[in-house]
């Protein structure tokens, strides 16, 4: 199995190199343990700048754990530890000297369920910038407008910036969460099944938004919806029971998968 993983990685790398994308985040034999249980097993792959990478796989395959490992959100879970390397900007983010606050400022995250704070829309977007020391009102207003525009929600909320964000619809809340993540201008945005709690219409809006955002940001998205992965991503990682089975260009992975498991999964034989 280990040998197989190595082999597939090599194929993809040559494949990816042909278009010459820059990698921004690399994992090397990266593992995550919950106590004795190895949830992510020695994953080695790359995530490319200004591209969308989708992580797919059946539930419990470790795809969310891997994603949360990318900005050390797993630190919160007691008994959870990581092994191997996760290289970002020439540094292993699991180094002892890493400042998690700085790391999370540069790698933002959007969650499965929209988790707006019970504050005003304005304060939600400002939460990050304020944490990082921006106090000036004019500057904050500028950031709010830019972020909400980028998240394609500005027109809907510009007249009620100071009302409670809880009153927004689910789809609007999720776009507000994206705006909140954008407000601290991260380099990478991690999205953990961002549309799983939304209706089809809102899902389409978020997918369109992701298409726009990849021009400026790098996006890693976990999804259980294969059509979504095929629609929006450039690269796809397929994971199964903690192992990375296959990694490659989305088009290739979905049309000519190299591995039997991948083919079985995308043709719906399990999952």
């Amino acid at each position: 199995m280990d040998n197989d993983t190595q082999k597939s990685l090599i194929t993809v790398n040559t494949d990816a190199a042909s278009e010459n994308p820059d990698s921004i985040l690399n994992t090397e034999e990266f593992s995550i343990f919950y106590g004795d249980f190895e949830a992510v097993r020695k994953v080695s792959c790359s995530f490319f700048k200004h591209h969308v990478t989708a992580i797919i796989g059946p539930s419990g395959c470790g795809k969310s754990t891997l994603l949360r490992g990318m900005n050390r959100m797993n630190d919160l879970i007691p008994g959870c530890r990581a092994d191997g390397k996760m290289i970002f900007d020439n540094a292993n983010i699991y180094d002892r000297t890493i400042d998690v606050v700085q790391l999370r400022k540069r790698i933002g995250m959007v969650f499965q369920k929209p988790n707006v704070f019970p504050k005003s829309i304005f304060d939600n977007v400002c939460y990050g910038p304020r944490l990082h020391g921006i106090r000036k009102r004019s500057q904050l207003e500028e950031i709010v407008e830019r972020s909400l525009n980028q998240a394609a929600i500005w027109d809907e909320v510009k007249d009620r910036l100071h009302t409670n964000a809880i009153g927004l619809s689910g789809g609007q809340q999720q776009r507000l969460c994206i705006a909140r993540a954008l407000a601290i201008t991260p380099e990478i945005i991690l999205m953990d099944e961002p549309t799983s709690a939304l209706d089809p219409k809102s899902t389409t809006k978020i997918e369109d938004l992701i298409g726009e955002l990849q021009k400026e940001y790098t996006i890693v998205i976990v999804t259980h919806n294969m059509q979504q992965a095929a629609r929006i991503s450039h690269f796809t990682v397929f994971m199964y029971e903690g192992d990375m089975i296959e990694f490659g260009k989305t088009q290739k992975l979905f049309t000519k998968p190299e591995k039997k498991e991948t083919e079985d999964y995308i043709t719906g034989r399990f999952g």
Partner: peptide
């Protein structure tokens, strides 16, 4: 909800900050 805490931490808030700005108000 623990999602509030996650959101704050993912935006780069420290533990104490998270408690004071998100958890206590909620």
């Amino acid at each position: 909800p623990s999602t509030y805490k996650e959101a704050a931490l993912s935006l780069g808030a420290g533990k104490w900050r998270t408690v004071m700005t998100v958890i206590l108000p909620a």
